[in-house]
């Protein structure tokens, strides 16, 4: 009779001797890429940022879903950037995090937005592990929508 409370299989976040430091949670092996993921062409540098900015092709443009984009944006970005993208999210309004610009005050393209979500920029961190590739493009496109709305008003 097998032990049905704790099985022989390894559980997420478990501690097992077979792993280094006993830690089941590990970063992917170097120079590998997980199934369903693809490489990002631009490096994490100022030059990479400029290249990404110039190359504004959104591979998921035809699948753009504003409702999904908004839902994800409101969770991950709105807390600082504000739900309209004015740079006045809840944390900014309460002076926890400062200096978040309004989207219309910056020259950004969908490619540069994606680059920043992927690598982060200055004080902003990377969101590559909270959003997958398709979700990042949805959010980038939604950010550009917000920017257009801000410029028009």
């Amino acid at each position: 009779m097998p032990n049905m409370y704790t099985s022989v299989g390894y559980e997420a976040y478990g501690e097992y001797d077979v792993f280094a430091k006993g830690q089941e949670a590990m970063a992917p092996a170097e120079n590998t890429i997980a199934r369903g993921h693809s490489l990002y062409a631009f490096p994490n540098s100022n030059e990479g940022y400029e290249l990404a900015k110039a190359d504004s092709t959104n591979p998921y443009e035809t699948d753009y879903d504003a409702i999904r984009g908004k839902a994800l944006y409101d969770i991950y970005c709105g807390i600082c950037h504000g739900n309209q993208g004015k740079g006045n999210g809840y944390l900014v309004a309460n002076e926890k995090i400062l200096g978040v610009p309004s989207y219309d005050a910056r020259e950004i393209t969908v490619g540069s937005v994606y680059h920043v979500i992927y690598f982060g920029k200055n004080t902003m961190g990377s969101y590559a592990n909270q959003l997958n590739e398709e979700e990042r493009w949805q959010v980038s496109a939604y950010v550009m929508n917000l920017r257009e709305a801000l410029i028009q008003n």
């Binding site: 807390i79 926890k96 592990n129 909270q130």
Partner: peptide, 27 residues
Amino acid sequence: NKIDCNYCHSSARVSKHSGIPSLNICM
């Protein structure tokens, strides 16, 4: 600070586990 649960526990949306946030999310 009204941070959405999914902000840190982002894998709850897409996987079996809700996920313990890695420290880069804190940072």
